[in-house]
Structures are given as structure tokens and as C-alpha cells.
Amino acid sequence: MKLEDIKKKNIYSVPDRYFDQLPTRIQSRVNEKKPVWGLSLSWNLTLRVAGPALAVILIIFYFSISNNTGQSTDDLLAQVTTEDMIAYLETTDITTDEIIEGLDFSTIDLDFYEEGPIMQNMEMSDEEYDALFDEYGIDGDLL
């Protein structure tokens, strides 16, 4: 069957006076929509105010969390284990010199300058020195 064999016809219809009333119904919806412009303005205003307000709230929240822990940076660092600290230092670009520069020697106990166990162990008798020289092939008379 060909399309030309069928008479072209609009089979659909509408209720009586539908097109007479439609413009009024649309107009009433458009009038209802007018406050939407106001709403859209309010939304813009809300967004403009909400952005900075949210930022302030987040900052306050961050500081309150920080304060609630009651821990200073030193306290937090003290909780880091030596192993973790070494692992961290190995992966950073900080040089040994920079680490030494950062140290305050006045607060560090340098016990090994005193006669502690390490230095005590360094005290050897002449026989012990001779045995050590023999082991490494060193002529003791040259020293």
C-alpha cells in the first residue's frame, strides 16, 4: 500500500472552545511565573551571601576542631615515632646540614663527651691494642 492511497486528514480534535480559552490559561500561568523572577533574584542573593557565609563557617569549624584537640604542634610532632620521622626525612629534600642547622644543641644531652659507657669501652690495655694492630696488619711502632 502506498502513502498516496490514504487521504491526508487530521484525526485529532479538541474540546469545544479550547483555543479560545488557551491564551487566558497561558496568561494566568505566565502571571504566576512573574514572582519567579523575584525568586530567581533571591536565589542570586542567597548564593552571593551563602558563599562567604559557608567559608566563614568552615573556617570556624576548622579552628574549633583544632582547638578541641588541645594539642600544640610540638605535642603532635612528639607523637610521631622515630621510625616514621626517619622514613619521612629520607623521602624529603632536606639535607643533613639543614637538619643539623635546625638543631638546638643546648637542649640536647650529649652524654658521649662525658665518660659514659661508650667512652669507657674505648679504654683498652696495651695488650689489647697490640692484638687489634696484629688483626688489621698495622705496625704499632708507626703510630
Binding site: N10, V14, F19, L22, P23, I26, Q27, V30
Partner: peptide
């Protein structure tokens, strides 16, 4: 408003169908 009303009346049937 008048212009919009005219626009609706002009095109409502074509658009509806």
C-alpha cells in the same frame, strides 16, 4: 503582555497540533 497574547493567539494552534 499584549504582544505575548498576540503571539500565543497566532501560534497556539500550529504548536498544539
Amino acid at each position: 503582555n499584549y504582544g505575548f497574547n498576540l503571539l500565543v493567539r497566532k501560534y497556539q494552534q500550529k504548536i498544539y497540533w
